[in-house]
């Protein structure tokens, strides 16, 4: 094998990778935040909601979890625009990622919410807390603490999956790489660099979620035990 690796493109193209990574961070932080919100509401409906509300949420979760993100992105971007709803690639990317993330988060948060015993709700009721107060203070926080490892893995998976939005040329890291690749013809090297950037991002995200967990879950911070 006489292949000569050539990473010289990095000398003047490295800012592109940094910019691309930053775009990916923006895209995914927004999608994670919104997806978590969608998933939490849907999970609450799945556990406590009326039957007529539970059914559509169940259909949503199953449809999304059993079809590829790539096809979901195509439907949002190409499909909706053919129906007259023209969305930019970035907006389409966020919508697809949020819808996707929401379905997975629903299942994770549902498990967390179901782990909160009914007696906790009764205790809150007897103390005079309203339903909303009970959900926020007695249900959601401990539920989230219980499933936080699964939740943060899902967040990292979403960050990695966001690379798929490059297929509709949404501006993010992989799309940037595709661009550099077509300029330099050093495909293998470019994707090695990009792989390393994603690897770094995934460690960064894990560290970030660990920090957020420390701030959010004071009990865990102090005792270090699982709830």
């Amino acid at each position: 094998m006489s292949y000569q690796f050539d990473f010289s493109f990095l000398a003047d193209r490295w800012p592109d990778f940094v910019a691309g990574a930053w775009l990916t961070v923006q895209l995914t932080v927004v999608s994670i935040a919104l997806g978590l919100a969608v998933g939490t509401v849907c999970a609450l409906i799945r556990v406590y909601g009326a039957r007529w509300m539970k059914a559509p949420v169940g259909v949503y979760v199953e449809l999304i979890r059993n079809t590829p993100l790539l096809v979901q992105i195509f439907i949002v971007y190409f499909g909706l625009s053919s129906l007259g709803l023209k969305l930019s690639a970035e907006v389409s990317a966020v919508i697809a990622l949020v819808v996707n993330m929401g379905a997975y988060t629903t299942e994770i948060m549902r498990a967390g919410i179901q782990s909160i015993q009914r007696t906790q709700l009764e205790a809150a009721d007897c103390l005079g807390l309203t339903r909303l107060q009970t959900i926020v203070h007695v249900v959601l926080l401990p539920a989230m603490e219980r499933v936080y490892p699964a939740l943060s893995s899902q967040f990292v998976l979403l960050m990695l999956a966001s690379s798929i939005t490059s297929q509709i040329s949404a501006e993010e890291l992989t799309a940037t790489a595709n661009l550099v690749q077509s300029d330099t013809y050093r495909s293998f090297e470019v994707y090695i660099v990009v792989a390393l950037v994603y690897l770094a991002l995934s460690f960064l995200y894990r560290f970030g979620f660990w920090l957020i967990g420390l701030v959010l879950f004071a009990r865990k911070r102090k005792l270090g035990t699982a709830l």
Binding site: T119, A123, A124, D125, G128, P142, E145, F217, A218, R219
Partner: peptide
């Protein structure tokens, strides 16, 4: 009901403290 909550306290067999709070 809401009024009742102000006037009646309940203690359970299984304590039902909130595990995530001090």
């Amino acid at each position: 009901r809401a009024q009742l909550r102000r006037d009646v306290g309940m203690v359970f067999q299984s304590y039902n403290l909130f595990p995530h709070l001090t």
